[in-house]
Simulated scan of single mutants.
Amino acid sequence: MALPASRTYIDVHILQTVPPANLNRDDQGNPKEAYFGGVRRSRVSSQAWKRATRTHFSERLPDQDLATRTRRIGGALAKRIASVADLNAEDANRLAGALLAPLKISAGKREGDTAYLFFYGRRQLDAVAALVKDRTAELLALDEKELTAEIEQLAVHKEFSTGHPIDVALFGRMVADIPALNVDAATQVAHALSTHAVELEFDYFTAVDDEQEKEEETGAGMIGTIGFNSATLYRYATVGLHQLVDNLTDEEAAVTAVEEFMISFARSMPSGYGNSFAHRTLPSLVAVTVRSDQPVNLVSAFEEPVTASSGIAAASARKLAREHAAAVKGWGVTPAFTALCHMFPTGDTAELLEHTFGEPLPFTELLSGLRTHLTDTLNQAAR
Rank of each mutant, 00 (worst) to 15 (best):
F302Q: 02
M343E: 10
M269H: 07
A130I: 04
V12S: 01
Q16K: 14
R235D: 02
A381W: 00
G358F: 06
V208Q: 11
A382K: 13
R25F: 05
I105F: 09
N247C: 05
E303S: 14
D26S: 10
S83H: 13
W331R: 14
G224T: 07
T17C: 07
D293P: 02
G330L: 15
P305D: 02
A381T: 05
A85V: 10
A257M: 11
A314R: 03
R71Y: 06
T70W: 05
L374Y: 05
V132D: 03
M269F: 04
F202C: 06
F265I: 11
P102A: 07
V132K: 05
E152C: 06
L61Y: 14
L353C: 08
P335N: 13
V44T: 12
P305M: 03
G112M: 07
F36S: 09
T364Q: 08
T238A: 12
T68L: 14
S194N: 03
T256Y: 03
M222H: 15
A321E: 07
F119N: 01
S194M: 03
A52G: 08
D209W: 14
L193P: 00
S316V: 06
G274P: 00
F36Q: 07
R110T: 15
T338E: 14
Q64I: 13
L66M: 04
F357P: 01
L282N: 09
A180E: 14
V258S: 03
N247K: 04
A350W: 00
Y234P: 02
H279P: 01
Q47D: 12
A169M: 03
A137H: 08
H324Q: 12
I105T: 00
T338D: 06
V156E: 02
K109R: 15
L117G: 04
E365T: 09
R80M: 11
I312D: 00
E260D: 15
A220H: 07
L353D: 02
R280F: 02
V175I: 13
N379Q: 15
G75W: 05
R80Y: 11
P19H: 04
E33P: 01
V198Y: 00
V44Y: 00
T195L: 02
F118T: 01
